[in-house]
Design a protein around this nucleic acid. Structure first.
Lengths: 222, 222, 222, 222
DNA sequence: CATGAATGAGGCTTCATTCAT
DNA sequence: TATGAATGAAGCCTCATTCAT
């Protein structure tokens, strides 16, 4: 069980193996319930080596959070073409987001659940990433308003609330999609796009937001 | 520190004190990081008494979850007048929800963060409550569709996704409102109502959902 | 479960109920594993009452040992007619002994197993009783020797060893008979009498000790 | 106090030290009253090391029982020459048995008293060993009967009872010899051999079993 | 580079025992 | 007489962390 025990690997590789094991363990067990013993065994190394490379459980967890946060943000960034109109950017961002969380459920669990349930210094690690995403969404909303010739009529606080709501909905849907068999990333994205852009009121009157034709050309699309 | 140490209280009272202390501690520290020692001290009793009344850490946590879930569901239920149209019911439900979570942040933390982060049997305890709320929202959406003469054109899975998104957005906004000074429950509810009912697309075109007459305080809702 | 809760019983009765419960619990669980809680519940009284009447766990256990030891010694004494020859007295004593241990397995467990596995002051309680029985057996041997016109040729230490061996064999057989279905007290007594009186050597040559005809007239006989 | 604290020993050695300490502690205090703290201190190590090597109190006790049972059985086996006639084999077995229990009183206490006093899984551990010895004795009796040209006239159940009585007597005598100053293993063996082989009846008539030539030290055996 | 050996600290749980009514 | 309420002390076990090789 665990990775095959190969000796004398370069440090960078070993470190990634450790982080892989740590993310899996933290994602499944939670921060406190995960034991350094289990992580070391899953990584196929001895415990002292984990300490040599990563210092402490706290540092190890922080490293996991950073790596996963970076990967998620980069996945979203890579999936969005900035030259498109705001709604299209949002659509692409959501697709990239749901795709990444579906492919990486333990990492998502670390970010969404585990890191937030324990106090500092972990919460702020995640908050940093989250704010990056919220800022992106906020700016999309502002741009959309401008495109609709409706310059900042929406007060800043209100926009912040809307962005927060949108991001929160996305986070919840990611967990829901991961837990509900048969829901693809694309469907989750479409549902949320509909909801966010058209609103329930419009949906009631058969005026949904129209997703673009199937093949988008976005790298992350599947 | 902690409750004033009063001796020889009837069992029912002591039990509530213990649950109060436990909810606070679990809410702040998380299930695993919370220690029975701390809970007992905060409750102003000795540890064996906690065990005498509540059996084990697991049972204590379960009791917290049940109490808080029941309180939340009842608060929402009590805030909604069933004779109103669907959008008004949603509005009232959201207001009750944000009001309760604002008044009871540790309880909300227990339900939203802590209980979901650790495996069974806690997760299912919360899932039960959450499904009750999702069912309520789902039914509101269905009724709204019917009121708009648009009988089940929305496929079931789609409705489920929308309800999930709405509830998820509410959950996130609750945490955000609790963490952002100066955001009232009413404002949070208005923002989410706007977002959910009118959608970003409509908002862009100055067609927000209209909250009822009473002074709203929400900027967008004017 | 436990005795029906009857209030206001005379002290002596209550005390016996407690001792009954204690003997059962100590016999089954052992001294350390038995809890005062369990004993009180089985006796149908509250814990403080047990303390009021019996002082402490140690005193309670000692009281159990004394009661059971007295009962056992009296059962054996009552079963023996002193006017008979030594071998007959031994035979009757063994029958009474095995009958009593079979009818009172928990009491026997307390005396034979539980009381001896914990240090003072319990061991000496049992030792006292055991010495009484060993003395009885020793005297039987001495009398038998005299009857065989073989006055104390057997040195004292040797007689003590023989008595010890006989009593030890009886103790072991009692546990064995209790644990082996279908072995009656009478059979156990006969086997031991044979073994002790005739010896294996004689048995090999078909010269067993002859047990008396079935109906002995002994009070304890069954 | 306790073993001299030597650091960094190979695992196998430390494990034996721990078992030594555990046997002593369990033998004196009993399973439940013995504390892991005491055992660890007596072994000269920290408690976690005991758990690292031996898993749990239960496993530790089981390991003690197994080690002591194996040692006892091997001591008896090694002391018996199978080519001798049955009575001589028994004599040698008893001598080996009493010698071993005298040299190893705590181990004997663990096997005879402590392990039998607490339920499964300990009892069956000892029962296995005991049955091995009872089987050996049973077979000796059968062989002796054959040698005396008295093929299985003794019914099986009767033989089982006799073996049980003999083993029980031996067990009791071992404890008695350990507790009575001045009784050697050889004397105990001679007394029991006399008792078992010749029987009280024969002893009364000055026909003891004859121990082999070498100076016996037993008064009756002269 | 890598690890077998070792531990201080702390958590959950239970128990015998007492007080105040 | 009888008990509901309460606790100090102690036990089992696990974990993050460090030496010494």
């Amino acid at each position: 069980m665990g990775a095959v025990k190969t000796k004398r690997m370069p440090r960078a590789v070993r470190e990634q193996q450790m982080l892989d094991a740590a993310v899996r363990t933290f994602g499944q067990r939670g921060y406190m319930a995960a034991s350094m013993d289990e992580i070391a065994e899953l990584a196929g190394v001895s415990k002292p080596l984990v300490y040599l490379y990563l210092n402490s459980k706290e540092d190890l967890f922080t490293a996991c959070i950073r790596r996963e946060a970076k990967a998620l943000v980069e996945a979203v960034r890579a999936g969005v073409r900035r030259e498109l109109p705001a709604d299209r950017q949002l659509w692409e961002g959501l697709r990239a987001f749901f795709t990444h969380t579906a492919q990486n459920p333990e990492g998502w669990s670390v970010l969404h659940l585990q890191a937030r349930t324990h106090g500092e210094p972990f919460a702020s690690e995640v908050t940093a990433m989250r704010e990056e995403i919220v800022a992106f969404v906020t700016q999309l909303i502002v741009v959309a308003a401008r495109e609709a010739h409706r310059d900042p009529d929406l007060p800043e606080r209100e926009v912040a609330g809307l962005a927060e709501a949108l991001v929160g909905a996305a986070e919840s849907l990611a967990a829901w999609a991961n837990a509900t068999p048969g829901v693809t990333a694309r469907q989750a994205a479409a549902t949320l796009m509909n909801f966010a852009w058209a609103g329930l009121g419009n949906l009631m009157e058969s005026r949904p937001w129209q997703p673009p034709a199937a093949a988008t050309g976005s790298a992350t699309a599947q």
